[in-house]
């Protein structure tokens, strides 16, 4: 927090006297509430558990009926996910089996051999995750940055035609993407942004901008103006108040916007499929591509989806403090 917050007219809230916190039995209702939340969370996570379990099931176990809760876990899914394989000719299988007997095969190679396959190399999945990290990361940063700036301006300044501009910004998200795909494709090829990291970063930034601007404006609107005004009177410049007063207060909003923008950019599928080929392709289009080899490779899809989920969960978890924090200025009196 900025130094102003400490030196300024802050009256720290030592103890809340909100009704819901002091009424009799608040503790008991709190426990009940925690229990309900836990229950809801568990129900909502069942499909995630299924995904997790599926990632370690053999194909036969996945299609067992009734569905298996307990099963012998296998790493087959990971093999499918991280390697490219080819069916080995019978002669080659014998050769490999000899190598296996000599203990010269690693775990993945052994698992592949068990289904008569030979690993030919790593799969493109890893490279695509890296692309996803670059593209989603950079575009999230850009869209949050621009969203914070524009959101603040729209919230605090009285510019002419503000509502129309805001509506224009919102409307860029209204046209179904399906229709703009082909013109965008033509444009990208013309400008040299096709299959290019910068192109994808800009595209996702644009895709998220309307959301981040609106959201940040919403958050800024919630923050009382009194502090800024006080600071301005005290001789702070507008930029100083923005950086030292407003930004610290809007951390919770910035965190939420970051999480949302990241999720959208991270999971975007249609543009990634159409606007990239090999160089800049992200992971989402490669997850469903594990279908279609004579049966759904559920384990690989599940493992791929989970692996793809982990970075977002980590980032959200890291930001949870800010996501859930109340605005500390709440105690200001008017």
């Amino acid at each position: 927090m900025a130094s102003f917050a400490e030196s300024g007219p802050r009256r720290p809230v030592v103890e809340s006297i909100r009704v819901d916190k002091v009424s009799p039995g608040a503790r008991a209702t709190g426990a009940v509430r925690a229990l309900i939340v836990l229950l809801v969370a568990l129900i909502m996570l069942i499909p995630i558990y299924v995904m997790f379990a599926t990632a370690f099931k053999t194909r036969i176990d996945v299609t067992a009926s009734p569905p298996k809760i307990f099963f012998q876990p296998t790493l087959e899914g990971l093999v499918l996910l991280f390697t490219d394989r080819a069916l080995a000719a019978p002669a080659r299988v014998q050769e490999l089996q000899q190598l296996e007997a000599q203990g010269k095969l690693n775990l993945f190679e052994q698992l592949a051999l068990a289904s008569g396959q030979e690993i030919t190399g790593p799969s493109p999945y890893v490279g695509r995750i890296v692309n996803s990290l670059i593209i989603a990361g950079a575009s999230t940063f850009l869209s949050v940055l621009l969203g914070v700036l524009a959101g603040y301006a729209f919230s605090r300044f009285n510019l002419p035609g503000k509502d129309d501009l805001l509506f224009f910004i919102l409307s860029t998200r209204m046209l179904p993407a399906v229709v703009v795909t082909i013109p965008l494709f033509l444009m990208f090829r013309q400008v040299g942004l096709y299959d290019n990291h910068i192109g994808m970063i800009l595209l996702y930034t644009v895709f998220n901008l309307s959301f981040s601007v609106w959201l940040m404006k919403g958050f800024f609107d919630e923050i009382p103006r009194e502090y800024e005004e006080a600071a301005l009177v005290d001789g702070y410049s507008r930029l100083q108040t923005f950086f030292k007063i407003v930004l610290p207060q809007s951390v919770s909003g910035i965190a939420a916007t970051t999480v949302f923008c990241l999720i959208f950019a991270w999971n975007e599928y249609a543009f990634a499929l159409m606007m990239t080929a090999e160089k800049a392709r992200t992971a989402p289009p490669s997850i469903p591509s594990m279908i279609g080899r004579g049966g759904v490779e559920w384990a690989a899809i599940a493992a791929g989806s989970l692996g793809f989920l982990i970075p977002v969960v980590i980032i959200t978890f890291a930001l949870r403090k800010y996501l859930l924090r109340g605005v500390t200025f709440g105690a200001i009196r008017q």
Binding site: Q190, V191, G192, L193, N196, H197, I198
Partner: peptide, 9 residues
């Protein structure tokens, strides 16, 4: 148009 494309295009 061609300008921004140069770096990694």
């Amino acid at each position: 148009s061609p300008a921004p494309a140069q770096p990694t295009a």
